[in-house]
């Protein structure tokens, strides 16, 4: 294999294809952060919930110590937390590539999506499963960050709010979340950078992102290295400034904390 200027020149004629791919990658990533955040937030609330259908069992006083211990254990059972916990572990402990195939071939093998294109060339029936798979994955990872951000708010804030008669929901909405946002936002922004890179697996289900167009150019021109190098360059140009901008805002936010 060789890298040559004449090859590069040839590949440059395909540049519009790569730029179209760039558009798709950005759109894919933005939508994923958005939906992923909603999923992550829901999961975080489930992980932090205090839904215990058998909580009354902890009040049982008679019985052997072993039985009381068992009842105490059952009383702590929280179905929402269990479901969210299993989900997060599933996302973390299976490969992204497997997840995207599961969604595309199995889930959307059963559910028929309407076939149409938007923005001129984006195929909905491939783009949509891509977003679903990426969002489900990213939501699983982000849920921990959001839970941490909410838990990171001083416990005294909850106590003060509850002692004033606020309900759990009011406390969460008016007191905890506004303070947690500051802990969460930088991590969500960083997740955006991660998603830009991770989204490249979507070419495997035919989403026409940057990587998909690299493959197309490679097979049309029989040139392997140069399209790949150009894609590398594009990804870098997307991620590097984004993460620098995030860093800048993060630093400014921290400075305003110490006023």
């Amino acid at each position: 294999m060789s890298i040559s200027f004449s090859n590069l020149e040839k590949v440059l004629t395909y540049l519009p294809m790569l730029l179209q791919g760039l558009e798709v990658t950005v759109l894919l990533s933005l939508m994923t952060v958005l939906f992923g955040f909603v999923i992550a937030f829901t999961l975080a609330l489930m992980l932090l919930s205090d839904v215990r259908p058998f909580r009354r069992l902890a009040k049982v006083r008679n019985g052997s110590p072993a039985r009381l211990k068992r009842l105490e254990f059952i009383s702590r059972f929280n179905p929402l937390r269990l479901i969210a916990g299993i989900y997060v572990q599933f996302v973390r402990c299976t490969p992204m590539l497997v997840q995207i195939f599961l969604i595309y071939y199995i889930v959307f093998g059963f559910i028929q999506l309407p076939k149409f294109t938007f923005f001129g060339f984006i195929q909905f029936e491939r783009f949509f499963p891509g977003i679903v798979a990426l969002s489900l994955n990213s939501g699983g990872y982000m849920s921990d960050v959001i839970r941490g951000g909410i838990e990171g708010v001083d416990q005294g804030q909850t106590e003060a709010a509850r002692s004033l008669g606020m309900s759990k929901g009011q406390t969460m909405f008016h007191i905890i979340i506004p303070q947690a946002v500051k802990n969460i936002l930088p991590a969500v922004a960083n997740e955006f950078v991660t998603i830009i890179k991770e989204s490249s697996v979507c070419y495997t289900i035919g989403v026409q992102d940057i990587m998909f167009n690299v493959k197309s150019i490679q097979s049309a021109s029989f040139i392997i290295a140069e399209p790949l190098l150009m894609a590398t360059f594009l990804y870098f140009c997307l991620c590097f400034p984004t993460s620098k901008i995030i860093q800048y805002f993060e630093r400014r936010m921290r400075a305003s904390d110490q006023r």
């Binding site: 003060a160 709010a161 002692s163 008669g165």
Partner: peptide
């Protein structure tokens, strides 16, 4: 039952006036 804590636990993202009125208003 009003409660006062060792570490005050005022709401840092709200002004003093908002700290005082949030519970009467929303509760």
């Amino acid at each position: 039952m009003g409660m006062v804590f060792q570490h005050f636990n005022l709401f840092p993202h709200k002004t003093i006036l908002e700290n005082l009125t949030i519970a009467p208003i929303i509760v």
